[in-house]
Design a protein around this nucleic acid. Sequence first.
DNA 1: AATATTTTTTAGATTTGCCTAAAAATAAAA
DNA 2: TTTTATTTTTAGGCAAATCTAAAAAATATT
Lengths: 222, 222
Amino acid sequence: MNYSISEENYIKAIYRLQSTREPVSTNALAVELDTKPASITDMLKRLKVKKLVIYYPYQGCRLSAEGTRLALGIVRRHRLWEYFLAEKLKFNWNEVHDIAEELEHVSNGQLIERLDAFLGFPRFDPHGDPIPDSSGKIATPSQVKLTTLGAHTKAKVSGLADQSQDMLNLLQQRNITIGTIVEINKKFGFDHSLEIKIPGNPPFIMSEQAAQNILVHHELEA
Amino acid sequence: MNYSISEENYIKAIYRLQSTREPVSTNALAVELDTKPASITDMLKRLKVKKLVIYYPYQGCRLSAEGTRLALGIVRRHRLWEYFLAEKLKFNWNEVHDIAEELEHVSNGQLIERLDAFLGFPRFDPHGDPIPDSSGKIATPSQVKLTTLGAHTKAKVSGLADQSQDMLNLLQQRNITIGTIVEINKKFGFDHSLEIKIPGNPPFIMSEQAAQNILVHHELEA
DNA sequence: AATATTTTTTAGATTTGCCTAAAAATAAAA
DNA sequence: TTTTATTTTTAGGCAAATCTAAAAAATATT
């Protein structure tokens, strides 16, 4: 089957929201997609006919098996393009998302398989998110929030909980990217802020709020 | 400005048809775009409002300066993607067109400039067609039909007049691609067919019809 | 439990891009 | 130069995806 860009965007949004709250409410979707609730209801009825979502009036929605398959395909395309843009075209970490948002809708199976091979079958995109493989399998890496680590520990940055522009800018300013090894020098009980050190840079203070959004791969030797 | 996929396809079609006949008739466009003449009239009126085409009822259309600029941008995107697909993703010469047809509508200036740099600023796509540069300048290479060359001359294949699937298949079977050096062994007066030799392959006969569609860059030493 | 508030859905309109059928303009033929 | 044929345009409709405004259902509050 072939789906419209709009349909794909709805499926992707439901997939995203589903990971935190299920079922997904009409209002939540409207906020996510920046449209009106009435438009959401309309589209949900169409997606239900196409058997991509489970939906009953007033009860929110969730993806069907087929919808999930589609969502994983879109996520795969999106993240492979992000990897390509960052790795090959040298875009910044925080510039790749919007472009990948367009490229992901180019649907040609061969294209994505060959792109994957060309890139060397990467398992994580530049934001540290796992890339589903061609069969739809997706790794769930053991990511933990930076705030959960104790003082005097090191860890490798592997992802972000909040990928807003503000967050991306903050990290760029601090020279933190995916793969950066961060060391926690000190934890301040007063406001739970952290003193962080990364190789080649002076230590700095990070708020608890920011640190909560930084996911690290696994704790390293002290 | 940002244009829809449909609008871009119209502009591209007008650009293509314009090179042989101007102004471009409504019917010719309908055939080219595989739609009905009434739909063409509809769209031409919209494109006129947007100042992309010069159009007066019953008199056909042609691109405005702005329309030409847009067309060259689309052609540039299309051909750079074709080059990427063939060169980096190892697609066959004859498979790249349809995929590039989708990718060309992803409109992000930075993306195309960086792709161009990544590819090493190629001047011709895998079909031998010139790629407009970022300012819209396009090379008009001194291509001549293979049939115009005399016997015992060599030349480098640089393009195709007819890029139909049949033609592409025929060339693939003969191991002819862009850049191949072809040598004319003999010309047969009877049916104007040619005996052609390419390095590493046995000589073979090609019809006048096929040879007319093969464009070569310039005659080489005998 | 009754009322108020929030969420969701329906109803009706709009825009884009396409269609068919019929009318009008242009071009070709007798 | 009429008549015929072709090309092009208009008129009216349709489907997708959106909107606003109003009604209906679900949830929360007193």
